[in-house]
Design a protein around this nucleic acid. Structure first.
Lengths: 337, 337
DNA sequence: CTGTTAGCGCTTTCAA
DNA sequence: TTGAAAGCGCTAACAG
């Protein structure tokens, strides 16, 4: 069937005006007779006229849409970042198109194609744990479409980034464990390719060093963030001749899994072994024992990233800046440590 | 700055062909010489040509986009529905635009405007707790844009809906409580305007009736789903002369809040009072004690809704059907009951 | 202040 | 099989 849409021409005909005059009236152009404008606006209202953004975008080469690509959607982290970003974007008159890459490189590449097809005016990205090649993202730079990274950033590209102070957060988390008397602190780390893994690992190491605890490589296990594998690593750690008395996890979902495994083995958290996470996800306060964790200003991160993106979009390509905004974290001590 | 885009004209010029031929080659039109097509395709590839969907949409009056409006984003429920819906949509070549209404009617109305501006080809909606007037949604029907409701549906409108068997789920949850010896079962219900509230309430009542337990109106409290108000109602219930020995909550977030409040008062779940939720959110299995709840096939719901929408979109308006798809729930008994 | 003209990038008749 | 021309709905010069 054929949908009918009310167009400027319809209004122009009924009012015996030219298209351009109607257009001007509609877009608030100053040089239109007040009475004319009034008439146009009234009729438009009455006819329920909607501007055809497709046509406008075709001309202006702007879609008023920003794209957001996130690795997943299931923990509370990314949805909350998105809430923040949408708040800022919609205030500035931008819509958002959201894609999730499902933590796979191929999907992420496909997502960028979608964004290109949608002709987004800007892109917010948090990369997958697999992403090592960034050509699909560099395309945007080349096309003059600004990009801002958040959380999981790409060091290769000279664009704005919003992160938290991962090093500092990890450092404080581990220091807290040491101060509560833990001697052998393990770290279930993330994929080495991710900057956050590296920085949190460095924070962990620095805290040990500062307190004259020798780093035991045996206690540091990098893993690929597939939660179903956590039991393997935790059991491995607990089966060591000299098992750890604390585990610092790369993130909260991991820490929560760790606690489950420990409990299943009949050990007590934190008596036998303390656990600390990173993120302060919604579930972390609810689990038993409640998880000690490093909280990130999640919504804030979304807002900041969106704001940075808007700034770029209103600038000439030549003036693009590659600011790195580092947000503060906060250590939340609960019962798991 | 001026972004440059490779267009059909560029290709046509280089190959000394007409725009139309290039267009035909690109769109896989049969009547084009094999060699010509080959040449066009190769050059397009080499030039990294991207079809301008705006222009195509302008002509075809189709955007290949479906809209999704959800009340919130913070529990695990809606993100998971969206994952399911996106899976089906993208397989069919559709992009998705997601909006969250933040549980307020005004935002929902604004969201529908966004969807209209984006000229979505179809809409998936779960309404807010406040939505009583549906004019903003009926607009879509009038314009020939199909709508499918999921989870929170509108009974006023004759369109496809995907829900779970709320009555049955509630019935079984409450029956389970009765069978485990509970005598005074309270129900923290949702806003009466929402169908799910009504149906779960009816399931609750039916289970009581079936077991010859008289309904005590004092034990049924409808509330507006603002979690911060849960303590008020729970404390009220616990302060009754004859307090309940179980609470059935409209959903999991509510149940989780209830457990917190009970624990804070120094009472034990489930010894002193059992709690049962509805949804099987991610957090529900983690909380202490693990929550007994009615699980819904969440991703499935998204998939079904998207499929129903696609079906409508490929049909003439006259043939639109208003199927109601009811998905099965499952009672998951854990430690809170 | 208003009308005319051209054109955004593409598809789609209608001819050749 | 290919080309020329018209037009999707709108805006943006350029005239008047």
């Amino acid at each position: 069937m054929k949908r009918h849409q009310v167009t400027i021409v319809d209004i122009a005909k009924q009012l015996n005006l030219s298209k351009s005059t109607v257009s001007r009236a509609l877009t608030g152009h100053p040089s239109v007779h007040a009475a004319t404008r009034q008439a146009v606006l009234e009729l438009a209202e009455q006819l329920d006229y909607q501007r055809n953004m497709l046509a406008i975008s075709l001309i202006t080469n702007k879609t008023n849409t920003i794209g957001i690509i996130v690795p997943e959607f299931s923990s509370s982290f990314f949805p909350n970042v998105i809430i923040g970003a949408q708040e800022i974007a919609s205030k500035a008159g931008y819509n958002t198109v959201i894609c999730q890459s499902n933590e796979t490189y191929e999907t992420e590449v496909a997502n960028t194609k979608v964004m290109l097809a949608n002709q987004v005016d800007g892109l917010l990205v948090s990369i997958t744990k697999e992403t090592k090649n960034f050509d699909h993202l560099k395309v945007f730079q080349r096309k003059g479409i600004p990009i801002v990274f958040f959380n999981r950033v790409c060091d290769d590209m000279d664009v704005p980034k919003v992160i938290v102070d991962d090093f500092d957060g990890a450092y404080r988390a581990v220091t807290h464990l040491i101060e509560s008397g833990r001697k052998r602190i393990a770290h279930l780390s993330g994929p080495p390719a991710l900057k956050i893994s590296e920085k949190r690992l460095n924070g962990y190491k620095a805290a040990l060093r500062k307190n004259n605890i020798e780093l035991d490589e045996e206690l540091v296990i990098p893993y690929d963030l597939s939660l179903e594998k956590v039991p393997i690593y935790v059991n491995h750690l607990l089966n060591l001749d000299n098992p750890p008395d604390a585990i610092f996890a790369i993130n909260d979902p991991t820490a929560i899994e760790i606690i489950q495994v420990i409990k299943k083995r009949g050990l007590k958290v934190p008596k036998d072994i303390a656990v600390v996470g990173f993120s302060n996800d919604y579930a972390s306060g609810l689990i038993d024992p409640a998880l000690t964790t490093v909280s990130q200003p999640v919504k804030e991160m979304g807002k900041t990233a969106a704001q940075l993106l808007l700034d770029q979009m209103n600038r000439d390509v030549a003036d693009w800046k590659s600011i790195i905004r580092v947000l503060k974290t906060e250590l939340i001590v609960r019962n798991s440590s």
